[in-house]
Amino acid sequence: MLTAIIALTVLAIIFGLLLGFAAVRYKVKSNPVVDQIDALLPQTQCGQCTYPGCRPYAEAIARDEADINQCPPGGESTIIALADLLGRDPKPLNAEHGEHAEKTVVYIDENVCIGCTLCIQACPVDAILGAAKQMHTVITSECTGCDLCIPPCPVDCIHIIPAIDETKKVHVELPQTPLLLNEME
């Protein structure tokens, strides 16, 4: 009886120490789930999900504060990927946050631009080039189409144009899906 108690106590102490050591030694700094979620988000940093950027939204999802269907630029494929990652059921995009649209970029009408730099400060990916009282221009290949530069512009010289998408040229649509057997009359 006594030996059993002693033996178990000693074992418990050993394993406790081992676990304690492991917890300190192999501590994970950032939440890996947040990183994984962040990797699936489209990184437009547009804020349509009501969070100030993709990473804050990823953190909110990880904390279970936000739903997985709040990202209009990502659309269905992002929702499916998130559902897959988090083991939830995919659901349609929440229309409150906007609709999934074709990819766009912005274009600055250089004749109208007054060089105020407000759009440069608003761009989350540093895709606008310019300086005070100098003409600004958008680096199209870096633009994510978040449209965050449009509200600050005092002269409304920023316009949305469709993005040139090389992969879209060859993209084939999904054919009409046949019914399932149990859906037949």
């Binding site: 990797a39 990184q43 940093q45 993709c54 990916v125 870096e142 090389e166 992969t167 879209k168 993209h171």
Partner: peptide
């Protein structure tokens, strides 16, 4: 292919952000 291209683009955007 499209998703792969999108992922590359978003990785790039994340880096820049």
């Amino acid at each position: 292919w499209t998703q792969e291209a999108d992922r590359k683009k978003s990785d790039h955007a994340r880096e820049r952000h």
